[in-house]
């Protein structure tokens, strides 16, 4: 037991020392780490796994893309060690966890902004209020809100064409929950696709289109889309940028992305090492992929949370230096 603890301190030290750079020396670390879940979080976990290979080449980290819900099904059976999630665990899943005796910890790893976009030639939209978005997307809107002028009177009397992520995606769940007020509640008469690039194409080729998807897809297609602002709770119109998503002013359409770690896994050295590595490198990797790093203080909180959950002492990492 004491040995184990010493090991941990030792590893954490190395981790901090070599933070961000390659050239780990703990080849003795081995075993498997199984990750599954959200395809939105996948790129971050893939990047972390890729970098972790230089730290601990003998640890076999695998990542699947069953979706947040599909991933939780496996996670809550104990089939996987870590679940990627683009939304929080749902009450029904919590119940399954209790039934199966699975304990877990939820860690936020990055932010994703949901961009509300229109066609570049759309010269009437500058911003939406949350009420307007709700009016457009709520189930009652089906067949009722069909023209731009139905949303705001001064807007043209032209058909409104809606594009959004498919109902199986966590993005859809998040949007409906924050805008409509109930997860999954939405009108059905919109063009849905699980592939956000299809939505990009749809909105960029239709002057009367309105769509929403992850900010990274807007960033990569700036020239063919127009970003709409969203009025936040404080009454300011905010457009999603690295800055506004990170500092929380672009709300309510900024969401955290999570990983869930299972208790039994969290007690293994290789998983502990991996999760620390994840939190240390997430800011840099998230940015490279197109997501938005959280403030350092938030990562600090996640580290502490994981330390306590894993049952090891917090002081070994509490001084954490971020890259």
């Amino acid at each position: 037991m004491v040995d184990k603890y010493l090991f941990l301190v030792f590893f954490s030290g190395i981790l901090l020392a070599s933070c961000g750079s390659g050239g780990g020396s703990e080849d003795q670390l081995s075993g498997e780490i199984k990750i599954d879940g959200s395809s939105t979080v996948f790129p971050i976990s893939e990047a972390v796994a890729e970098e972790f290979r230089t730290e601990a080449p003998d640890v076999r980290v695998t990542v699947g893309v069953s979706g947040t819900g599909g991933g939780f099904q496996k996670f809550l059976r104990g089939d996987t060690d870590i679940n990627n999630a683009s939304r929080e665990i749902q009450p029904s899943e919590v119940k399954t966890a209790e039934e199966n005796g699975i304990e877990y910890v939820q860690l936020s790893v990055a932010y994703d902004g949901l961009a509300v976009v229109v066609h570049p030639e759309n010269d009437w939209v500058d911003y939406f209020t949350v009420e307007e978005l709700k009016k457009i997307w709520e189930p009652e809107a089906q067949g009722e809100i069909t023209r731009w002028s139905d949303v705001r009177e001064e807007w043209p009397d032209e058909e409104l064409h809606l594009f959004g992520p498919g109902v199986a995606s966590g993005t859809f769940d998040y949007f409906t929950e924050t805008i409509v007020g109930e997860s999954g509640a939405s009108r059905g008469d919109f063009t849905a696709s699980e592939d956000d690039n299809v939505l990009v194409q749809g909105v960029s080729t239709d002057k009367y289109a309105l769509g929403f998807f992850g900010l990274a897809y807007y960033e990569e297609n700036k020239e063919s889309l127009k970003l709409a602002g969203v009025q936040n709770g404080a009454g300011n119109v905010v457009r999603p940028t690295m800055q506004t998503v990170s500092d929380g002013t672009y709300e309510p359409l900024s969401r955290p992305l999570f990983i869930y770690v299972r208790k039994e896994a969290a007690q293994q050295e290789n998983v502990q090492q991996f999760v620390h590595f994840y939190l240390d490198n997430a800011p840099m990797l998230a940015e490279q992929i197109g997501y938005i790093p959280m403030p350092d203080s938030v990562y600090q909180v996640q580290r502490k949370k994981f330390e306590e959950f894993a049952g090891s002492q917090t002081d070994s990492v509490s001084t954490g230096s971020d890259s």
């Binding site: 599954d36 996948f42 893939e46 890729e50 695998t62 990542v63 699947g64």
Partner: peptide, 12 residues
Amino acid sequence: LIVIGALAYVPF
């Protein structure tokens, strides 16, 4: 294959 749990990132 995705349903039966084929992975997307396998380093070996």
